[in-house]
Simulated assay, not measured.
Amino acid sequence: MDKESKSHKEKPLIGITMGDINGIGPEVIIKALENSRITQHMTPIIYGSTKVLSFYRKQLNLDNFNFSPLNDISKPYHRKVNVVNCWEEQVEINPGQDNAIGGKYALKSLEAATNDLKGGHISALVTAPINKLNIQSDTFKFAGHTEYLAEKAGQSESLMFMISDTMRVGVLTGHIPLKDVPAAITKEALVKKLKMMTKSLKQDFGITKPKIAVLGLNPHAGEEGLLGSEEKEIIRPAIDEFKSKGQIVMGPYPADGFFGAGDHSKFDAILAMYHDQGLIPFKSLTFSTGVNFTAGLPFVRTSPDHGTAYAIAGKNQADEGSMRTAIFAALDIVKCRKENKED
C-alpha cells in the first residue's frame, strides 16, 4: 500500500444524516461541506438523496458544492463528499412545511446511517435536525435521536452532553415533561450520569482529572430545605459519594447565580437537573457554535444545537456554524478515543 492510499485509509469516515428534507438540514450540510478542504481531514458521507441535495444546491445557488454518489460503503471516495442514496423514488420537497414526508425520509436516512455506524463502516455520525413529531412511526417511537441511538446501542440510557469550546453541559433528565422531573431525580440516576460524564471527559476530551459542577433543582438550591428537599436528601449525598473517592464534583449550585456569575468557566462540565435548566444558558452563551453530543454510547454521535427552523428553510438564511462545529467535534472525539485506547 502506497503512502497516499494509507493516508486515505486512516482518514475517519464521518456519516451525516440529512434530517427533515423540508427543514434547514440539507442547507446547513451543503454550506458546511461546500469548502472542499474539509476532505483533507475526513471523508464525509451524507445519508439521504442526491436528488434532494441537487434541489437545494440549485434553490440556494450553492454551485460550488459537489458530491459523488456512493454505492459501496467499503469503497468511499476519499477526496470528495459522498452521498448514500437511502431511497430512489422522486420525493416532493416543500421547504418550510411540516409534513409526513419530511418525517418519513428523515427516518430512512437515520436508519441507513445507524446501520452503517453499528456495523463499523463509518467512524462517527452527525445528525441533522428532525421534527420529533412527524418522524414518529411504528419503527420510531422515541423522544429524539438520543433515545433512538441509545436503544440501537442496546443501552437503556445515555447522556445528552452539550459541548462547545467554552462550556460543556449535561442533563440528568432529558426529553421528559417538567412535571415528571422531580420523581426522576434519584441518587442512583445522579451517580449513573456523573459516571458517564466523568468517563466521557476522560476518553472523549482527554481531561485526566475532570472538575464537575452539579446544579440544584430548586430556586437557590433549596435554601437548606426551605424551598425543597431534593438538594439535601438526594443531590448532595450523590456528590459526597464522588468526593469520597477523590473526584472533583462540586455543588449543588443555584442555577441562576452559577451562570450569571460566570462560574461555569471554572469547571470542565456541568450537570443540570433538567433539559431547559441546562440548555437555555448553554444556547444563550454558545448559539451557532454549540454541539449536542450523545455521551455514554459505544459510538460517536453529534448534532447541531438547533432544530429544523422551518421558518427560514429554503431561503438561504440558515447559519451552518453549528453543523460545521458538530462535524469537526465528531472528528475530534473519534481521534481522542483512538489516542486514549492506544494509551
Rank of each mutant, 00 (worst) to 15 (best):
residue 59 Q to C: 11
residue 153 A to I: 07
residue 297 L to G: 01
residue 170 G to C: 05
residue 105 Y to C: 09
residue 88 E to K: 15
residue 87 W to H: 08
residue 185 I to W: 10
residue 202 K to R: 13
residue 309 A to T: 09
residue 313 A to Y: 04
residue 204 D to N: 15
residue 232 K to Q: 12
residue 66 N to P: 02
residue 99 N to E: 11
residue 139 T to S: 14
residue 166 T to W: 14
residue 61 N to M: 14
residue 339 E to N: 05
residue 219 P to Q: 08
residue 251 G to S: 07
residue 25 G to M: 04
residue 66 N to I: 14
residue 19 G to I: 08
residue 254 P to S: 02
residue 43 T to V: 14
residue 218 N to I: 13
residue 118 K to F: 14
residue 141 K to D: 08
residue 277 Q to G: 11
residue 145 H to T: 13
residue 228 G to T: 02
residue 169 V to W: 10
residue 160 M to K: 15
residue 129 P to S: 01
residue 180 D to S: 06
residue 264 H to Y: 14
residue 98 D to W: 13
residue 144 G to I: 12
residue 5 S to A: 10
residue 283 K to D: 10
residue 156 S to M: 10
residue 155 Q to E: 11
residue 213 A to E: 04
residue 37 R to E: 12
residue 184 A to E: 11
residue 320 E to Y: 12
residue 211 K to W: 15
residue 234 I to N: 01
residue 90 Q to I: 14
residue 99 N to W: 11
residue 337 R to A: 02
residue 258 F to G: 01
residue 68 S to I: 14
residue 5 S to R: 11
residue 86 C to E: 04
residue 200 S to M: 12
residue 25 G to H: 03
residue 311 A to Y: 13
residue 76 P to F: 04
residue 22 N to Q: 10
residue 297 L to A: 01
residue 303 S to N: 02
residue 181 V to E: 02
residue 163 I to Q: 05
residue 62 L to E: 12
residue 69 P to Y: 00
residue 252 P to R: 12
residue 209 K to C: 15
residue 218 N to T: 12
residue 30 I to G: 02
residue 185 I to V: 13
residue 242 F to K: 05
residue 49 S to I: 08
residue 287 F to H: 06
residue 340 N to Y: 09
residue 227 L to P: 03
residue 30 I to P: 03
residue 192 K to M: 05
residue 195 K to R: 07
residue 214 V to M: 04
residue 315 K to H: 05
residue 114 T to N: 00
residue 176 I to L: 09
residue 258 F to Y: 00
residue 175 H to D: 13
residue 201 L to H: 06
residue 283 K to Q: 12
residue 80 K to P: 03
residue 26 P to W: 14
residue 234 I to H: 00
residue 284 S to F: 10
residue 184 A to S: 13
residue 173 T to W: 01
residue 58 K to I: 03
residue 317 Q to V: 04
residue 292 N to G: 01
residue 308 T to G: 06
residue 30 I to R: 06
residue 100 A to G: 07
residue 61 N to T: 12
residue 310 Y to V: 08
residue 102 G to C: 15
residue 341 K to D: 08
residue 165 D to K: 15
residue 108 K to S: 11
residue 289 T to D: 12
residue 108 K to Y: 15
residue 288 S to Q: 11
residue 306 H to F: 09
residue 125 L to D: 10
residue 295 A to Y: 13
residue 41 H to D: 02
residue 31 K to N: 01
residue 276 D to C: 08
residue 4 E to Q: 14
residue 18 M to D: 10
residue 127 T to Q: 04
residue 307 G to K: 07
residue 56 Y to K: 07
residue 103 G to F: 14
residue 5 S to V: 12
residue 38 I to H: 06
residue 217 L to G: 00
residue 249 V to G: 08
residue 130 I to F: 03
residue 226 L to P: 00
residue 225 G to A: 11
residue 166 T to H: 15
residue 135 I to V: 15
residue 117 L to W: 04
